[in-house]
Lab assay of single mutants.
Amino acid sequence: KWTITVQGEEAIKWAIKVAEARNLDYTVHIDGDQAHITIE
């Protein structure tokens, strides 16, 4: 299990796209213009 933090709307969209493309189980916690994405 690991967490990445991305900043900015484009980076958030990209990170989610990558997680979905790899069929990963993930949760997103949005904090202002940052998102913390935890991959199970």
Rank of each mutant, 00 (worst) to 15 (best):
5 T>D: 03
12 I>A: 02
3 T>K: 07
15 A>F: 14
32 G>T: 03
31 D>F: 11
32 G>S: 04
40 E>Q: 13
35 A>F: 12
3 T>D: 03
37 I>H: 00
17 K>V: 07
18 V>A: 11
23 N>P: 10
2 W>L: 07
8 G>V: 04
2 W>P: 01
6 V>E: 00
11 A>N: 12
39 I>Q: 02
14 W>P: 00
6 V>P: 00
40 E>L: 15
3 T>R: 06
31 D>E: 12
18 V>G: 04
14 W>Y: 08
37 I>Y: 02
20 E>F: 04
40 E>P: 05
9 E>K: 09
5 T>W: 08
32 G>Y: 03
34 Q>I: 15
11 A>H: 06
22 R>T: 15
9 E>N: 07
40 E>T: 15
21 A>C: 13
2 W>G: 02
29 H>W: 13
23 N>M: 08
35 A>E: 02
22 R>M: 15
1 K>G: 08
3 T>G: 02
13 K>Y: 09
20 E>H: 05
31 D>P: 01
5 T>C: 10
40 E>K: 12
30 I>E: 03
31 D>M: 11
28 V>A: 03
33 D>I: 07
29 H>Y: 13
38 T>D: 03
31 D>V: 13
1 K>D: 05
36 H>I: 15
26 Y>F: 12
8 G>A: 03
9 E>F: 12
16 I>P: 00
32 G>N: 05
39 I>M: 08
11 A>C: 15
20 E>P: 01
12 I>S: 01
7 Q>V: 14
21 A>W: 11
17 K>Q: 13
32 G>D: 03
8 G>I: 05
21 A>N: 13
30 I>S: 04
17 K>Y: 10
11 A>W: 12
35 A>S: 03
22 R>P: 04
20 E>Q: 08
6 V>H: 01
13 K>F: 07
10 E>G: 07
8 G>N: 03
40 E>I: 15
2 W>K: 03
12 I>V: 06
21 A>R: 06
26 Y>A: 02
25 D>R: 15
20 E>R: 04
28 V>P: 00
32 G>A: 05
2 W>V: 06
20 E>N: 07
5 T>R: 06
11 A>T: 05
13 K>A: 13
14 W>G: 04
11 A>G: 07
9 E>C: 12
16 I>L: 10
2 W>A: 03
1 K>F: 10
20 E>M: 06
6 V>G: 02
36 H>Y: 13
6 V>R: 01
4 I>P: 00
3 T>C: 13
2 W>S: 03
36 H>Q: 10
33 D>A: 08
13 K>H: 06
27 T>N: 06
26 Y>Q: 00
3 T>Y: 08
3 T>S: 07
21 A>F: 11
7 Q>A: 08
26 Y>G: 01
35 A>K: 03
23 N>T: 03
4 I>F: 12
10 E>T: 10
17 K>L: 13
12 I>G: 00
9 E>P: 09
13 K>W: 10
11 A>K: 08
30 I>F: 13
32 G>R: 04
24 L>V: 06
14 W>S: 06
28 V>L: 09
6 V>A: 04
11 A>Y: 08
9 E>A: 13
7 Q>R: 13
16 I>W: 02
38 T>R: 06
2 W>R: 04
22 R>W: 15
23 N>C: 13
13 K>N: 09
28 V>E: 01
33 D>G: 08
15 A>R: 00
13 K>R: 14
21 A>I: 12
22 R>D: 12
36 H>C: 05
14 W>E: 09
13 K>Q: 12
37 I>E: 00
5 T>K: 06
31 D>T: 09
13 K>D: 06
6 V>C: 06
21 A>H: 10
9 E>V: 12
18 V>H: 11
1 K>Q: 10
38 T>A: 05
21 A>G: 09
27 T>D: 05
8 G>W: 05
26 Y>K: 00
17 K>R: 11
1 K>S: 11
32 G>C: 07
33 D>C: 11
18 V>N: 09
7 Q>D: 04
38 T>G: 02
35 A>M: 08
15 A>P: 00
10 E>F: 10
40 E>M: 14
21 A>L: 13
11 A>L: 10
4 I>Y: 10
35 A>P: 03
34 Q>H: 12
5 T>L: 08
17 K>M: 14
20 E>V: 08
17 K>E: 13
40 E>W: 15
3 T>Q: 07
8 G>Y: 03
34 Q>G: 09
33 D>N: 11
31 D>L: 08
1 K>A: 10
4 I>H: 03
30 I>A: 04
7 Q>W: 14
33 D>R: 05
10 E>R: 10
8 G>R: 02
15 A>Q: 03
40 E>Y: 15
38 T>F: 07
34 Q>D: 07
35 A>H: 04
8 G>M: 04
34 Q>M: 14
38 T>W: 06
4 I>A: 02
27 T>L: 05
24 L>M: 06
22 R>L: 15
27 T>G: 03
24 L>R: 05
5 T>Q: 07
36 H>S: 09
2 W>N: 03
36 H>W: 14
3 T>H: 08
40 E>S: 13
15 A>E: 02
15 A>H: 06
30 I>P: 03
10 E>A: 12
38 T>N: 03
6 V>K: 00
19 A>H: 02
25 D>Q: 14
26 Y>P: 00
22 R>E: 14
30 I>W: 12
39 I>K: 00
14 W>Q: 09
29 H>G: 03
21 A>S: 12
9 E>G: 07
8 G>P: 01
16 I>S: 01
4 I>T: 02
37 I>S: 01
24 L>G: 05
33 D>K: 07
4 I>N: 01
32 G>P: 02
